[in-house]
Computed example of a mutant assay.
Amino acid sequence: MSRTFTPKVVTGNALVEGDAVWLTEDDRWSRHMSEAELIEDEAHAQLRLLFAQSQPGQVVGAYLAEARAGRSGPEPVHFREAFRTRGPSNYPHGKQADSATNF
């Protein structure tokens, strides 16, 4: 018996800066998960992942991450993805300084 597909977002890390990024519906890479395309179809998710992996000059380590619809866009399901939305853990500025993104 196959598992039911759960909604996903495409994520990876920006090649130069290393920041976590998410693929938007209009093929941009955003540093905000809330702007990501929430994908609810498994075949479409695989196509979007292939698209992401075809951009080695922009993004590395692209993968599908579980997500759910939130008030402002996709939200993380797992701790790892919630942690990634906050940015590097060794900087007291940027995403971590913005209390609105702390989970």
Score class of each variant (00 low, 15 high):
46 Q>V: 01
44 H>W: 02
97 A>N: 11
53 Q>N: 13
78 H>C: 12
40 E>L: 05
90 N>I: 06
51 F>Q: 12
39 I>S: 01
50 L>Q: 15
78 H>I: 02
72 S>C: 14
8 K>T: 08
57 G>V: 08
6 T>M: 10
102 N>D: 10
69 A>F: 00
96 Q>E: 10
13 N>D: 06
103 F>V: 03
79 F>Y: 10
55 Q>C: 07
19 D>I: 08
72 S>Y: 07
99 S>T: 12
8 K>S: 05
39 I>M: 02
47 L>C: 03
71 R>S: 13
91 Y>V: 15
6 T>S: 10
76 P>Q: 01
50 L>W: 14
101 T>P: 06
75 E>A: 10
76 P>R: 07
64 L>S: 04
68 R>T: 09
83 F>Q: 11
37 E>W: 02
14 A>G: 07
100 A>D: 15
27 D>N: 14
71 R>M: 11
53 Q>C: 13
87 G>T: 11
26 D>T: 08
61 G>C: 05
76 P>N: 08
34 S>M: 09
6 T>G: 10
38 L>Q: 00
33 M>W: 00
18 G>C: 05
68 R>H: 09
61 G>N: 12
52 A>V: 06
79 F>S: 09
18 G>P: 09
49 L>P: 07
19 D>K: 06
27 D>M: 04
70 G>K: 06
37 E>P: 02
15 L>K: 13
90 N>P: 05
59 V>C: 01
19 D>V: 04
48 R>P: 09
17 E>D: 15
23 L>C: 03
79 F>A: 14
48 R>L: 00
13 N>W: 08
74 P>A: 07
5 F>M: 08
90 N>L: 11
38 L>G: 00
56 P>M: 05
68 R>K: 15
68 R>W: 06
86 R>I: 07
91 Y>P: 06
49 L>C: 08
36 A>T: 03
10 V>I: 13
70 G>Q: 06
61 G>M: 02
103 F>R: 11
26 D>G: 00
47 L>M: 05
24 T>G: 04
13 N>E: 07
28 R>V: 06
8 K>W: 02
59 V>A: 00
9 V>C: 11
16 V>P: 09
79 F>H: 11
50 L>E: 15
65 A>L: 05
14 A>S: 14
81 E>S: 07
24 T>E: 05
17 E>G: 11
56 P>I: 02
23 L>W: 02
29 W>E: 02
100 A>S: 14
92 P>R: 08
84 R>M: 10
62 A>L: 04
66 E>G: 12
66 E>K: 15
77 V>K: 09
64 L>A: 03
37 E>L: 00
34 S>C: 04
37 E>H: 01
89 S>I: 14
82 A>H: 13
77 V>M: 10
102 N>Y: 13
57 G>N: 14
87 G>Y: 06
21 V>L: 02
98 D>V: 03
97 A>T: 04
18 G>K: 06
69 A>H: 08
48 R>K: 08
31 R>W: 03
99 S>H: 12
41 D>Y: 01
4 T>F: 08
92 P>A: 10
